[in-house]
Design a protein around this nucleic acid. Structure first.
Length: 348
DNA sequence: AACGGAACCAACCGCTGTTCA
DNA sequence: GTGAACAGCGGTTGGTTCCGT
């Protein structure tokens, strides 16, 4: 839509706020509360537009604002949340008490973003920059790896999770980014798991099982049809992440029980027969495309996964089965249109 | 001390989503 | 159902401060 900014009206002041203006605004809000921003400036005796007043209040004058440098913990939290939520500054700010979206956005652009770039990490995707990797390792001969029958059996058993895991991550992150749909309590339930899963997806176990390694190889093959073996590059990627990021610490002893902490969301899904139908469909569509290339890729990223329209339809239709299967317990979480819930544009 | 570039951050701008008549 | 009004969000700008030469 887009409307002309209200500040364009003649007589309204722009630019830095004076102490007198601040006092007028604070006094008015203390007395009347935050009401109609449109009428507030006139009632408060301010020559400002309502938008400017709201911004000044929310970003500077609010009594609960924490000022000063960001702590190490806050910085780590921002990085983790950004890897999940992308540039959803307001959503990130909602999880950092006392910090505003503007402050976090500024801090990201001036400090964190540059730091990640120096470390060779793409601040958009949170993955190592491909131009810094030794891509020649991707070109290893296809016959370099011969899986055993045991590997194949294990892979077959884990296949469903391997395929719909990323999509569940995406689903959960979408829910977290939709505060009007999911309650705070529900988001609090999802967030720790999402961060943990995100860490795992960025830094897989250093002494992974054969099945893990084989799954990774399979995943890489889906992303690069024609390349049978890409685990070397993958391992390089992982080591790079662990060495550089400093925020990818894994829970001790997680390796052999990586599905132990599967949260209710995933558990409910895995318990249903619908998920089998869904996972198998996604698996088949994955043969030619990369569904949900990773929750760590914000929608703005050009590196986001791409699929054709047919597989998008399949994915959405079967995701609907998941929602049905989860049932009334999670109804609040899914009280929205699927088209809204799933950022379909990511898959186009 | 003077200058220029980098870093920082408050504020603005343009857009989207929601509400309501 | 439609469109205007409004609130809020994310990207960008521009003024100020810091720091190295």
């Amino acid at each position: 839509m887009g409307r002309a900014p209200c500040c364009d009206r003649s007589g309204l002041k722009k630019g830095p706020w004076t102490q007198e203006e601040d006092e007028l605004l604070v006094a008015y809000i203390k007395k009347h509360g935050q009401g109609n921003w449109r009428t507030l400036p006139k009632n408060a005796g301010l020559e400002r537009c309502g938008k400017s007043c709201r911004l000044r209040w929310t970003n500077y004058l609010r009594p609960d604002i924490k000022r000063g440098r960001f702590s190490f913990e806050e910085e780590e939290t921002i990085i983790q949340l950004h890897s999940i939520l992308g540039n959803k500054w307001s959503a990130i700010a909602a999880r950092l008490p006392g910090r505003t979206d503007n402050e976090i956005k500024n801090y990201w652009n001036t400090h964190i973003r540059k730091r990640l770039l120096r470390m060779g990490i793409d601040p958009v995707t949170h993955a190592p920059r491909l131009d810094l990797l030794d891509l020649s390792s991707l070109l290893k001969p296809a016959a370099a790896y011969y899986p055993t029958q045991g590997d194949l059996d294990t892979l077959r058993a884990l296949e469903p999770l391997a395929n719909y895991g990323p999509d569940l991550l995406r689903l959960a992150s979408t829910l977290l980014a939709a505060p009007t749909h999911a309650s705070t309590a529900e988001q609090q339930m999802l967030l720790p798991w999402l961060i943990q899963a995100q860490q795992m997806s960025q830094a897989p176990p250093q002494h992974a099982t054969a099945a893990d390694q084989f799954m990774q190889t399979g995943s890489a093959c889906q992303q690069m049809p024609g390349l049978v073996h890409a685990s070397s590059a993958q391992q390089q990627h992982q080591e790079h992440m662990v060495a550089c990021s400093g925020y990818a610490q894994l829970p001790a002893g997680y390796v052999d029980s990586q599905f132990d902490f599967v949260p209710p969301l995933m558990q409910m899904v895995s318990d249903t027969s619908n998920c089998l139908q869904w996972s198998s469909t996604v698996t088949s569509s994955n043969n030619n495309c990369n569904v949900g290339s990773g929750v760590s890729t914000p929608s703005s990223s050009p590196a986001a996964g791409r699929v054709n329209s047919a597989s998008t339809t399949t994915f959405c239709a079967n995701a609907s089965n998941i929602v049905d299967a989860i049932g009334a317990d999670a109804a609040g979480l899914f009280d929205m249109q699927l088209s809204d819930l799933l950022d379909v544009s990511d898959y186009m």
